[in-house]
Computed example of a mutant assay.
Amino acid sequence: MTDWDALSPQEIERRSINIAPGGWSVERERPMATLLGSCVAVCLYDEATRLGGMNHFMLPNMRRGANDDVDTVLSGDYAMEVLINAMVAQGAARHRLKAKAFGGGTILTGSASSNIGVRNVEFAREWLERERIPLVASDFLGPWSRKVLFVPAIGDAYCRKMATTQPTAQEIAREEAAYAESLRRKPPKSNVELF
């Protein structure tokens, strides 16, 4: 078993799996990492089972429209439900869950989406309060992007705020847009025939 307390954040980041926008993971040992702009990542953990999970959502709630599937996968509603259900399925107990949450930065000023971060933060706080999951640590809002590392085996989270430069903002926006676009594309037709 790894002694996570003895490793530097750089080594933890090197060993981490990346959680992309709309993604989530539940792990016992392997750490997780994500890069946030206006998105929010919630880390849940159960100390008794040494099980933890992280999600990364772009929108607070589902919208109804032409891209329902896309909006569902990128929404906080979906991200929180899928994360908690996966943790319970792997042995976590709801009453023992604790949360750490990050993000909601304003990285693109003057755009119509500049309040999405605020809405994401409000959603995360309200959802956790409604589910009676204590938010034991958080770092929200401000003009920063954030790199978040989460070590499920010990429940530790690291958050590095980064001054948002135009290239960083563009990189985050491209990553989020590319992920959303990948969900909009229909899968290619298969040449496999089932009989």
Rank of each mutant, 00 (worst) to 15 (best):
A93K: 14
S138A: 15
M162Q: 13
E176M: 12
H56Q: 02
P31D: 00
D3S: 13
Q10K: 06
L51A: 01
T165R: 07
W4N: 01
K98T: 09
R63L: 12
L128V: 01
M54H: 09
A137H: 06
D46K: 11
R130Y: 07
P9Y: 02
F140G: 07
F150A: 10
N115T: 15
T34E: 00
L74R: 07
V148S: 05
G37C: 02
P9C: 03
A157G: 07
Y45G: 03
S145Q: 08
L97T: 06
R119E: 12
N120A: 04
I19Q: 03
R96T: 09
R174A: 14
A99Q: 05
I133M: 04
G37L: 05
E176L: 08
M1V: 12
V40R: 08
R64C: 00
R28N: 10
L74V: 06
G103M: 10
M54Y: 11
M1Y: 04
N61Y: 08
R119L: 12
E47Q: 14
L183Q: 08
K161M: 12
V82S: 01
H56R: 13
I107K: 10
F102D: 03
P152L: 05
E176H: 11
E181L: 15
R94W: 14
A124C: 05
F140H: 06
M62P: 01
Y45F: 15
T109N: 10
L97N: 03
G52S: 10
T165C: 11
R63Y: 09
G155P: 04
I107T: 11
G52R: 05
D139A: 08
I19V: 14
A48W: 13
S8Y: 02
H56W: 05
V40G: 04
M162C: 11
R132Q: 13
Y158G: 01
T34Y: 04
G53H: 13
W127C: 06
M87S: 08
Y179T: 14
K186R: 14
G52M: 05
N115I: 12
E47A: 15
D5R: 08
R30Q: 15
V40D: 03
M62R: 13
T164S: 13
L194F: 11
I107V: 14
N85E: 11
A33H: 10
P187A: 15
A79E: 01
A173M: 15
K189D: 09
L194I: 13
H95W: 04
L108M: 13
A153I: 00
T106N: 12
S138K: 10
E29S: 09
L128C: 11
S182R: 15
D139N: 12
R130N: 05
T164K: 07
F150G: 01
H95A: 09
C159L: 06
E175W: 10
L74T: 02
P31S: 04
G155M: 06
A33T: 10
P188D: 10
L51W: 09
Q10S: 13
